[in-house]
């Protein structure tokens, strides 16, 4: 249980921390692709009787770098190359696992997560990998933000954009293997994307979105793990459904919150005499905007 909780918390922190950059680049499904490729690593790990977590890390890093290179250099056939990589990775994993004499239960535990089988060795690997992910996503947040926000502009600032893109890919791959034992390779991507999507229903800034997504991620992985302790339900599926539940609740809260913000902004806009935005401020904003517009000396 203790091992399971440690693994769950680390996944809850790392998956949204990387996921936010993927969502920002509109590559929300990249984690899913890496998850498929990681399967081959798990199979290799079984075949060579090494720890599947490390082997999966190695293979998914290679896969993620390949994906990033295809994205950066590939033109029209890029999506087909990615499809080959994804399904090749998954099929290779299943085949290798079978050759290694792994059971279907083994396979399922990697596909959908199995907290009860997390070993001491797994926890060590997960802690080290999670430390790397947090160091990158927090330490380089300004650089990664700039690259994910506007890649062309980032290149013109002289940032090593290619290296940073590869770093995001590698970090995402590492996160997939961190999360593999908890939510499983098929549901990894959900934990990278859903907390971020839920958080941004309420937020206006990147910083707050980041913090809130990590809080939501940790919350759902912890509560999901505790539920599986008392109820015999699969952890990965429970955690993902909880995350989606949070998303739905926050989305429902978002509309009234936005209305309140618009009202506050309108009041503030009227008070300062500046151009007010949003519904109620229009009476004030229109004349002043109009005037400055007409004064343009063309």
């Amino acid at each position: 249980m203790q091992r399971a909780l440690i693994a769950a918390v680390l996944v809850g922190i790392t998956a949204p921390a990387v996921g936010i950059y993927l969502v920002q680049r509109r590559q929300a499904l990249m984690g899913d692709g890496i998850g498929h490729v990681a399967m081959t690593g798990v199979g290799l790990g079984f075949l060579m009787s090494t720890n599947p977590v490390w082997m999966a890390t190695l293979v998914s890093v290679v896969g993620a770098v390949a994906m990033e290179l295809i994205r950066a250099y590939g033109r029209t056939r890029g999506d087909i190359a990615l499809a080959l990589l994804f399904y090749g990775g998954m099929a290779g994993g299943v085949l290798l696992m079978n050759m290694a004499g792994g059971s279907n239960a083994n396979l399922l535990s990697y596909l959908f997560g199995s907290l009860s089988t997390v070993s001491e060795e797994d926890v060590t690997a997960i802690v080290l990998l999670a430390a790397f992910v947090v160091a990158v996503t927090v330490g380089l947040r300004r650089q990664l933000f700039a690259v994910s926000q506007d890649e062309e502009f980032a290149r013109v600032t002289g940032l090593p954009v290619r290296a940073l893109n590869l770093l995001i890919a590698v970090t995402a791959a590492v996160t997939v293997t961190v999360a593999m034992r908890v939510v499983g390779l098929l549901l990894v991507s959900a934990l990278m994307v859903v907390p971020v999507a839920a958080a941004q229903q309420l937020t206006r800034s990147f910083r707050v979105t980041f913090v809130l997504a990590v809080v939501i991620g940790t919350g759902v992985t912890l509560s999901g793990t505790i539920i599986t302790y008392y109820q015999d339900v699969p952890p990965g599926a429970t955690i993902v459904l909880l995350a989606i539940g949070v998303f739905v609740v926050l989305t429902a809260l978002a509309a009234p919150l936005a209305r309140r913000r618009a009202r506050v902004a309108a009041v503030a806009g009227a008070g300062s005499g500046g151009p007010g935005e949003g519904g109620d401020g229009c009476d004030v904003a229109v004349p002043s905007t109009r005037r400055s517009g007409d004064d343009v000396t063309a």
């Binding site: 936010i20 969502v23 920002q24 680049r25 509109r26 929300a28 300004r142 933000f145 700039a146 994910s148 926000q149 506007d150 502009f153 980032a154 600032t157 971020v196 941004q200 937020t203 206006r204 800034s205 990147f206 910083r207 979105t209």
Partner: peptide, 15 residues
């Protein structure tokens, strides 16, 4: 804008 909310200040800071 991009896929995640960002404030005016955050975007300008990247400059």
């Amino acid at each position: 804008a991009s896929g995640v909310p960002a404030t005016v200040r955050e975007v300008v800071t990247s400059g």
